[in-house]
Structures are given as structure tokens and as C-alpha cells.
Design a protein around this nucleic acid. Structure first.
Lengths: 193, 193
DNA sequence: GTCTATAGTTTGATAGAC
DNA sequence: GTCTATCAAACTATAGAC
């Protein structure tokens, strides 16, 4: 755990907001400085480059997803309950890091190597956590025999998109959104009784 | 229907590919010209601006979605079958316009007004087609009473993401992907019998 | 329709005073 | 740590010859 100055924190959260609103490439260092009320050159006392900011946002966001979901995957909850709680935890990470997760999902393409490869590796590892739980559920004859990669991607696609429409001041809490999504994805839209 | 020169067609499809691979802002007019084997200035005999290219890609892609899905929504298929066929049709548009649909989903933010508002309006109209069918299914007591906006967004999120992983040379046809997705989303991951 | 040449901005980043 | 000043490179787009 590295200590981070208050100023650096302020820069990072402003960058998250602007990178989300306008996109990474469309946000100039001058835009960022203006939003902070300083000159562009002053930023370089806190940050090595614009890309370092992108990387630090993406990397911290990945940590948040792993830290929230891995303990649940490693718990001894019943498989169905486990997958539900993983989905809820994932959605809660998104909703409390809405700007950062939007940047995480949309702007990683603009990282340079080797960061881009490292990002892809973590993304794949994360998907692997979901795949393992889904495979377990299939082995237990609890889940249908869809391809496990297909299933994991379909679930993650549906829940990742919450970053575009969730509003903290709306009628649903983050947990409610996660539980609705989990109910929808595990049981389907069709009424069975 | 406007006649489009072969050269213009070639420019558009190259733009789709580059805008997808690198992003709209990261693709310079010089990159595009180089990929076509001409000088940047020569492009302007065919195209008014770089943004005009983005708009024409997004607008044509929207047409494809509407043209494929609306006739099914207006047919008198049984509601469940209708929703399945809409999902299949949507996935097939994505898979046969993979570059264009990726640009459509990811780069619309970089349109200027009034194109950006027009894009948002069509997007919302399109979601409305799905919402209407879902509401019908709820009224028929066939679908569960999820919020219809929530249901439409969840389905569209899951199926839109195919643009990132579908491979035409993989083991599944576009129709098979659509049917799998439809089966997953309508009936859920959990085994019920 | 394609070229060369270039105008006019904007960009990320640095130098050096305070 | 913030400023002013500035650099070198990249950008979209245009002018005008062929």
C-alpha cells in the first residue's frame, strides 16, 4: 500500500470523470488541468505522463474487482448462491467506481505494451474465476450445459453494461440491481410457474 | 438509395476496420490513406471530413438493425418466438457487420451535434421495439414482471457484446450464437428439470 | 482523382524562474 | 509545486498543379 498525496488523488478522480465523459484520447492534458484549476505543466509534478494516469485507473479498478469477487469464489457457499453473490459484488464495484469502471471497460485499448498485455491477462484471469464456478455448477448438474466461456461472457456482458445506465440517485440500490441481474440471468425471462 | 462509387465503398470499409481496431480518434486521416495506398489529401475528393465517415458508418449500421428486427417485431409470431427471432436477427446483423457494429457501439460519443442526438434517438427507438415485445409477453403472463427497460437493456447488453468475441471461422454460425443467447436469456442458466 | 505543399491548430511534454 | 514560455510532433483540412 503506497501513500498517495491528496493532490494526486484529486487528479486521478478528475481524470476518471473526464476520461469517462469524453474518452481518453479526447481529453487533453490541458482539459484535465483546467478542470483542476491549474496549468497543464503543473500536472507533471504529480504524474509522469497522461498514460500513467490511464494505467493507474485501470489497474486499481482491476484490483477492486478481484478483491471483491475472489473471496466469494473461494468461499464454501452453495454454487448457485456463490454465483449470485459474485454478480452482486461485481455490480457493486461498478456502481461505486462508475467513472473508473467505464474507463476500465472502454479505454484499455489505448494502453501501450506491456501494460496492454498485462491488462488482457488480468481480464482473462477474472473471467476464469466465473468460468470455474460455472463449470462446478455444471458438474453438480445444477446448471445447463452451455459452453462455460460462452456463459461467463454472456453474464459479464450483461452486468458490465450497468456502468452506462446505473444512477446512484435512482430507485434501485446497487445490491438490488445485482440481485435483479442475477435473478434474470440464472432463471431467465420466461415465467416457469 | 444513393449510388456509391467503388472507391467510396473501399474507403468506408477500410475506415470501419481501422476505427474498430484502433478507435476513431486514434485513426488519423493519414493512417486511413496509407491503408488505401493513397495520400491523405486525396481522400478529400471522396469524403467531406473524417467525421462524415464515422456518421455514415453509424447511420448505415442503425439502418441494418432496424431493417432486420422491425419486420419481425411487426409480424404475428408468438411472443416468445418473436423475441427469439429478434435476438437472432440482431446477432446476425452484428456478425455480418462486425467492424461497423463495433464502431457503432463504441465511437458514437465522438459525433458532433446534431448527429449525436439523432444517434441517441434512434438507439432509444430501437430499444423501444424490444421493450414493446417484452411488455406484450408480460401482459400475456408469459414473461416475469421485471421492469421492461431493465429487461431490454440486459438482453441487448448481452447480445451486443458478441461483437468483441464472435469469429466467423469459429465453430458456431451466427444463427447458432443467436439461438444460444436467446435460450440463455429466456430460460436462464439454471437447470429446471 | 491524385499529387505536393502547406496553412492553422492542437497535442504531450520539458526548461527554468519563483 | 506552480507558473510562463516554448518545443517538436501530430493533427484535419485546403490550395492549386497535373
Amino acid at each position: 500500500m503506497k501513500a498517495v498525496s491528496e493532490r494526486k488523488q484529486q487528479i486521478t478522480s478528475t481524470a476518471e470523470r473526464l476520461f469517462n465523459q469524453k474518452g481518453y484520447l479526447a481529453t487533453s492534458v490541458r482539459d484535465l488541468a483546467e478542470a483542476l484549476g491549474i496549468e497543464a505543466a503543473s500536472l507533471y509534478s504529480h504524474v509522469q505522463s497522461k498514460e500513467e494516469l490511464l494505467w493507474s485507473i485501470a489497474d486499481r479498478c482491476a484490483d477492486e474487482f478481484f478483491d471483491a469477487v475472489r473471496p466469494i469464489a473461494e468461499s464454501n457457499l452453495h454454487t448457485q448462491q456463490k454465483l449470485t453473490e459474485m454478480i452482486v459484488a461485481h455490480v457493486m464495484v461498478i456502481t461505486r467506481n462508475q467513472d473508473a469502471s467505464a474507463v476500465f471497460f472502454r479505454e484499455w485499448k489505448h494502453l501501450s505494451e506491456p501494460q496492454k498485455s498485462q491488462y488482457a491477462q488480468r481480464q482473462s484471469d477474472y473471467e476464469g474465476i466465473f468460468k470455474a464456478v460455472i463449470r462446478k455448477g455444471m458438474e453438480e448438474n445444477l446448471f445447463k450445459n452451455f459452453d462455460e466461456g460462452f456463459s461467463a461472457r454472456t453474464i459479464l456482458s450483461a452486468i458490465n453494461w450497468t456502468h452506462t445506465w446505473y444512477r446512484p440517485d435512482g430507485e434501485w440500490t446497487a445490491r438490488q440491481v445485482g440481485e435483479h441481474l442475477s435473478g434474470f440471468l440464472l432463471n431467465g425471462l420466461i415465467r416457469t410457474i
